[in-house]
Design a protein around this nucleic acid. Structure first.
Lengths: 136, 136
DNA sequence: GTGATTGCAAATCTTTTGCACTAAA
DNA sequence: TTTAGTGCAAAAGATTTGCAATCAC
């Protein structure tokens, strides 16, 4: 077996200034080695359990927020009942399937905003989020 | 005093198929007689208390959802911790002031989406929400 | 009167926190 | 060894629910 099976992930964590603990490494592997993903704290915790990774839900919450601060993840607001996190941190938008509460990326330039208002005086635009809400 | 001081609001409720109870009339007056407004259940409840209207918080929640189903209000998702309701049910978008958690309407055509992706097969677009997130 | 609506308190659900314990450096 | 990170259980905050009391019609 590869003597340094987690080196990628460990580097990523170090680069972000996060100490590579067992839990962070395991969660980072789940998050970043499966392409672009959308997770909630609950869903990631369940996934970790299935993979026999022992992590508490509190640590999952903490970790998701730390990763978000470190810009390894992006938080997406589509539902006022739950937080979603996206492993795709590039500029893009989302489809949201009401009913199944599922999120899907909309590739970067499939949405074009050709006109935007100027921000109110003294304010800066942090981000523009476009959510296309779908129903059956 | 006007013998039918609430007639407007009462008509509005009846038209929406909602029985005009004391609480609904009072909340509808607060909501619809002050121009375009953004409220949370908590803020509307506080406002009602100040106006000496006796309504429980549970009833405020129920009423906001009934009004939303009846399309007298629109629910806006900008924060995964709280529900916001908007008395402006026309097509428009929002500024969200992170920090003060305040919402402001962006007039209809100050945002132009010149390109949108086709919805996935079998799905219908229910709404497209644009949120411009601001910071100081 | 009768069924819809309300209030209250308890329940639920997601998320955060305090603190003793453990592990990384 | 020193400090950051973790787990657990408890707390917090938003929202919902069950049910008896009340109100609109």
């Amino acid at each position: 077996m590869d003597p340094r099976p987690y080196s990628h992930v460990i580097e990523k964590l170090r680069a972000a200034g996060l100490r590579p603990t067992r839990q962070r490494i395991a969660l980072a592997k789940l998050l970043f080695e499966g392409g672009d993903r959308h997770v909630t704290a609950e869903s990631l915790h369940a996934e970790a359990q299935e993979a026999s990774i022992r992590v508490s839900l509190a640590t999952v919450y903490n970790t998701l927020h730390q990763f978000t601060s470190a810009e390894l993840l992006r938080e997406i607001v589509v539902d006022s009942q739950r937080c979603y996190f996206d492993t795709n941190t590039t500029d893009h938008h989302h489809f949201f399937f009401e009913g199944s509460n599922r999120l899907e990326d909309i590739p970067g330039d499939d949405v074009v905003l050709s006109k935007l208002p100027a921000p109110p005086h003294g304010k800066t635009v942090k981000r523009v989020d476009v959510v296309v809400r779908l129903e059956e």
